[in-house]
Amino acid sequence: MSLGLALTMLTLIVLIPLAALALRAAALGPAGFYEVISDPRVFAALKVSFLTALAAAIANAIFGTLTAWVLVRYNFFGRRIFDALIDLPFAMPTAVAGIALVSVYSPKGLIGQWLAPLGIKIAYTPLGIIVALIAVGFPFVVRTVQPVLEEISRETEEISATLGANRFQTLFFVVLPPLIPAILTGFALALARGVGEYGSVIFIAGNLPFKSEIAPLLIVIKLEEFNYAGATAIAAIMLAVSFLMLFVINGIQSWSQKRFGHG
């Protein structure tokens, strides 16, 4: 029953629309499709999108896990406010996040003005894209790790300590393994979200071809040229690569769940 219901909704909301997309891209034919993806500018934009998303997702996996740990295990003044702030990137329209970030990290901005004399430019460079993607993807890791961490029994840690493990060993060999599926999920989601992100990035990226032009912007440009097929072709490639990445990560995750899972 639950599977049927889930499949129905999945079909209606996700599969049918994406099939329409694939159909439109297929109208190009293999030759036209190859022409789109072999364009060095498209390739450069895809590279920018995937690499910045990867860098941001790695940063988020590390700091997101740390933040989840701090929020679940430690009690400190302002913890609840801290907790509340995590979700802000979801609530802020991406355009607002972009405007806010660029006003802080531009060479004349609140933080940017201190970095500029050091030769560090954030806004209008790929670094700016990473900053935006970190901000946008941050809640994913925290919010997937947090509930699992809350569920983990302290007893195993006590046992581990009783058996003579030091705190670091306990954390690394006892606490971390069951968290890995959740961390991976968060990582994958942050990565996937980062690859497609548009609204916040265009404000801070600089959008220079071959340097800081992201793939979604190229899609928008193709649309401006009324080139639906070209736009959907880029979208289809992004989709295929993301799907593959997610599939691999989900595969690792289900493997690690079988290995470390409590089931």
């Binding site: 999945l10 909301i13 996700v14 599969l15 049918i16 629309p17 994406l18 329409a20 997309l21 439109r24 991406t94 994958a188 989601l189 996937a192 979200r193 690859v195 497609g196 992100e197 548009y198 609204g199 793939a215 979604p216 899609i219 928008v220 649309l223 639906y228 736009a231 959907t232 979208a235 992004m238 989709l239 993301s242 799907f243 990445m245 997610l246 599939f247 989900n250 595969g251 289900s254």
Partner: peptide, 27 residues
């Protein structure tokens, strides 16, 4: 096909927002 299904569920995250709107225009 569980992993496949899980991945399909994640898919909307990886679709650029520009495209998520566009698919409905295409439909």
């Amino acid at each position: 096909g569980k992993t496949f299904l899980t991945t399909l569920i994640d898919l909307p995250f990886s679709v650029s927002p520009v495209i998520s709107g566009l698919v409905y225009v295409l439909l």
